[in-house]
Write a protein that binds this DNA or RNA. Structure first.
Length: 810
RNA sequence: GCGCGGAUGGUGGAAUUGGUAGACACGAGAGACUUAAAAUCUCUUGGCCUCACGGUCGUGCGGGUUCAAUUCCCGCUCUGCGCACCA
């Protein structure tokens, strides 16, 4: 009898699949398509980790399951290669990032193949390949044409010693992470994508997405749409007007101050000579503070009076104008009306600086404990609106303001435009040429790609520009519009740009004429299952944004790129904590395979650990258990081959187990419940072990084992393929139809009806399937044990749930 | 603070529509095979009472609805995650 030896059979079948190109697919309108993809990996030097192994075990189970159903399955792979880790490594070792990246990709690819993931490698893409980023640049140019990419001055972190821009996370407590010097904010021109223009469109589609609720909620909160009003406050001693945004126009009569963000245009200007110095000092210092510091909840409110006053358009009262950094410049108008009586933040501010607190909503008696009442109620101190309820009066007050020209309805979003430019070398160059006469001009399509030039030193030079800026022969070019000397944009794109359309490129990856052929895209897309475990908002919102734009451009038939988002948990170390190199508790999936467990056991184990959306802790005994399970199937198949005979054995029982399992596994995989699918295969195996003592009847057992082989294939494809061939099939497993169950074989002639007395289980009746209600009730009441609990009391009620139970109430 | 989840044996988890709680696996215990061990196979395994039949308690805590609640409702506790001065 042959022993189960994964390290022998797995490479063998991997080679066969590769030789026969079994996973390469083309458009085939005669068959339903299924597109499944994991989030493409960033190929780091460390190689694949358990998270990758888990993600792609899910992807591959789905891909194989659908392929076995005869569907045309697209399961592609690519590499997200631009970004800081590769660039920093390049700076440190003075090796071109492209070279390091190529090595890492080769390593990852080898590992994916060793996992047996059924990828169509003919579609492999790499975001740092000019043939790919050519089209990323093309998209940029299209967005620029449509006014969806624009340049704007914006404040950035600047280290005056290193003379470089720093990302938010490179600033630690107001100091540069490298040299420790105090950083400052510097205004620089940056590129943005106008995602805010799609705020409503992106929000509107959320309810229809088949995505986990928590991701949908996170996206909706991130977009943060709120309906409110803009209200104008005229200044007392100047012609200037301050416009505020509020979601509570009903509290307007309680606005006792105006507070400006330090960055507000008028904040310096409104300072009267008496307060000028204090205001300037305050604004200078607060602009230096990190957003994280400014948004710190526990920090005490600060602020400075400007000396100016404005008029509350509702009450006509004179209210002071202050500058305070608790007001955010990026949201609404960067100015708020402070209503201390009904807003916690304004209350703190007013309390600290002695501003008047005017209640305009009657606090319900039930809410005496609340210091600041922000609920609904009846208006007081609100002139003609007194006695009306807050929720009713909002629109009315706005309409009243609108009549006077001092207010209007307004929708605000938390979401800001997407800052896309990076002053870094290792990214897709922004395809823009700056012409002295024509300003920024998009590089024409026939001149794409703008290829990243070779440089000697990848580090930023210290002038706030990427290393590209020092390549004179690259920077100096001519204007596409007028032909006069002009300069290339030296910023590169955020890596998220590259990953915002790769799911589309997979469908038509070798197209040299255009980004994609709509006919091909519309066949494969949208993605049916997108599998991943991070990126709640950023990537998953950007992909949606770009796809919406593509639809509007007529480049696709669909708005939403991802039908179902399969969001999985993390695999933690054995002690339940996160795996980390420094703790030395990292499990390397390739080690597990090479220890002799094999890829099949690894994959099956990862899917058996629990529901995919849960975090799980690696258990080295758990994988041993799975190996044992696979081995039991193997042994069963070997014993069958050694001793099957022509006779009628336990045929009916074998068939029943077989068909029950087919139904359960099919059901469970369809609802992505892999752990229970595997457990039912375990039950099936245990059942067959009990039945085998009566011998293997040739035909029925062959059929039962063939089903086993096919049902286990999504999890343990190599063993499945080997046993399939041992059982005499000349077709690969994926070319054979998924087994179909027969309900009549599952059905039993008897049913078990449980009997409850006062809600407690007292007996189980095994009765013929066709026993009628009256007979069953009779049997239940007559049951000796049941009777002893009823005693001489009269049953008040007897409830019968067909085929399930009799519930007796006494 | 706001939002979204989660809590079931020694452990991971199952119970899909309110209907036998603990499937399956790990661990533990016992037995078979073996000179022995490993491997493998079989059985037992939520707590308490009972030789046993069986009883009783039990799904984070407190209430409620129901013939019946892990499942639905109300109020808490703990915990994970996301957002966080968004007016």
């Amino acid at each position: 009898m042959k022993r189960y030896n994964p390290s022998e059979i797995e490479p063998k079948w991997q080679a066969t699949w590769e030789e026969q190109h079994v996973n390469e697919v083309t458009v085939d309108p005669s068959r339903p398509k299924v597109y499944v993809s994991g989030m493409f990996p960033y190929p780091s030097g460390a190689g694949m980790h358990t998270g990758h192994a888990f993600s792609y075990s899910i992807v591959d189970a789905l891909a194989r399951f659908h392929r076995q159903h005869g569907r045309n399955v697209l399961n592609p792979m690519g590499w997200d290669t631009f970004g800081l880790p590769a660039e920093n490594y390049a700076i440190k070792t003075n090796t071109a990032p492209a070279i390091v990246t190529a090595e890492n990709i080769a390593n990852f690819k080898k590992q994916f193949k060793r996992m047996g993931v059924s990828i169509d490698w003919s579609r492999e893409i790499n975001t740092s390949d000019p043939e790919y980023y050519r089209w990323t640049q093309w998209v940029f140019a299209k967005l620029f044409e449509r006014g969806l990419a624009y340049q704007k001055e914006s404040l950035q972190w600047w280290c005056p010693v290193d003379k470089t821009v720093l990302a938010n996370e490179q600033v630690e407590g107001g100091h540069c992470w490298r040299c420790g010097s105090l950083v400052e904010k510097k205004s620089m021109k940056q590129w943005f994508f106008k995602i805010t223009e799609y705020a409503d469109a992106l929000l509107d589609e959320i309810p229809d997405l088949d995505w986990p609720q928590k991701i949908k909620t996170a996206q909706a909160n991130w977009i943060g749409r709120s309906l409110g009003a803009e209200v104008e406050f005229k200044l007392v001693d100047s012609k200037d007007i301050i416009t505020v945004f509020t979601t509570r126009p009903d509290t307007l009569f309680g606005a006792t101050a105006i507070v400006l963000a330090p960055e507000h245009q008028l904040s310096r200007q409104l300072a009267t000579s008496e307060f000028k110095e204090a205001i300037d000092e305050y604004i200078d210092s607060s602009i230096k503070k990190s957003e994280i510091e400014r948004m710190n909840d526990t920090r005490e409110k600060t602020g400075v009076f400007t000396g100016s006053y404005a008029i509350n358009p509702a009450s006509g009262e004179k209210v002071p104008v202050w500058v305070a950094d608790y007001v955010l410049s990026g949201y609404g108008t960067g100015a708020v009306m402070a209503v201390p009586a009904h807003d916690e933040r304004d209350f703190e501010f007013a309390e600290k600086f002695g501003l008047p607190i005017v209640e305009v909503i009657e606090k319900p008696d039930t809410d005496v404990d609340t210091r600041v009442y922000h609920g609904e109620g009846l208006l007081v101190n609100s002139g003609r609106f007194d006695g009306k309820s807050t929720s009713d009066v909002r629109e009315e007050i706005v309409a009243w303001l609108e009549q006077q020209g001092t207010g209007r309805p307004k929708v605000s979003y938390k979401m800001r435009d997407w800052l896309i430019s990076r002053q870094r070398y290792w990214g897709a160059p922004i395809p823009i040429i700056h012409c002295p006469d024509h300003g920024p001009v998009a590089v024409p399509e026939d001149q794409l790609p703008v290829v990243l030039p070779d440089v000697k030193d990848f580090a930023p030079k210290g002038d706030g520009k990427s290393a590209l800026a020092s390549v004179d022969e690259w920077v100096n070019t001519t204007c596409p519009t007028c032909g006069k000397p002009a300069k290339r944009e030296t910023d590169t794109m955020d890596g998220y740009a590259c990953s915002s359309w790769y799911l589309l490129r997979y469908a038509d990856p070798r197209n040299a004429e255009r980004a994609w052929d709509p006919a091909i895209i519309n066949y494969w897309e949208p993605v049916d299952y997108y599998v991943g475990g991070d990126h709640a908002v950023a990537h998953l919102l950007y992909v949606r944004f770009w796809t919406h734009v593509f639809k509007d451009m007529g480049l696709t038939d669909f708005k939403e790129p991802i039908k179902k988002l399969v969001y999985h948990g993390y695999i933690n170390a054995e002690d339940g904590t996160k795996m980390s190199k420094s703790k030395g508790n990292v499990i390397d999936p390739l080690d597990v395979i090479e220890q002799g467990y094999g890829a099949d056991a690894l994959r099956t184990y990862l899917l058996f650990m629990g529901p995919i959306e849960f975090d799980a802790a690696w258990d080295s005994r758990g994988i041993a258990g799975i190996y044992r399970f696979l081995n039991r199937i193997w042994v069963l198949a070997q014993e069958y081959q050694d001793s099957a005979k022509d006779f009628d054995g336990n045929d009916l029982a074998v068939k029943r187990a077989q068909h029950k399992t087919i139904r359960k596994v099919t059901d469970d995989i369809n609802r992505l419940s892999f752990n229970t699918a595997i457990s039912s295969l375990m039950e099936y195996t245990n059942e067959l072990y009990k039945l085998k003592v009566d011998g293997f009847s040739k035909v029925v057992w062959h059929d039962a084992l063939q089903s086993m082989v096919q049902l286990i294939a999504p999890f343990a494809p190599h063993m499945s393929e080997e046993l399939n061939s041992q059982l005499g099939s000349t077709e690969l497993v994926q070319n054979q139809p998924w087994p179909i169950w027969d309900d009549s074989l599952i059905a039993e002639q008897t049913m078990t009806v449980i009997v409850q007395v006062n809600g407690k289980l007292r007996a189980k009746l095994v009765v013929a399937k066709d026993t009628d209600e009256a007979q069953i009730k009779q049997l239940a009441l007559e049951d000796e044990h049941v009777a002893s609990f009823i005693g001489d009391k009269k049953p008040a009620k007897v409830i019968y749930v067909p085929g399930r139970l009799v519930s007796i109430v006494v």
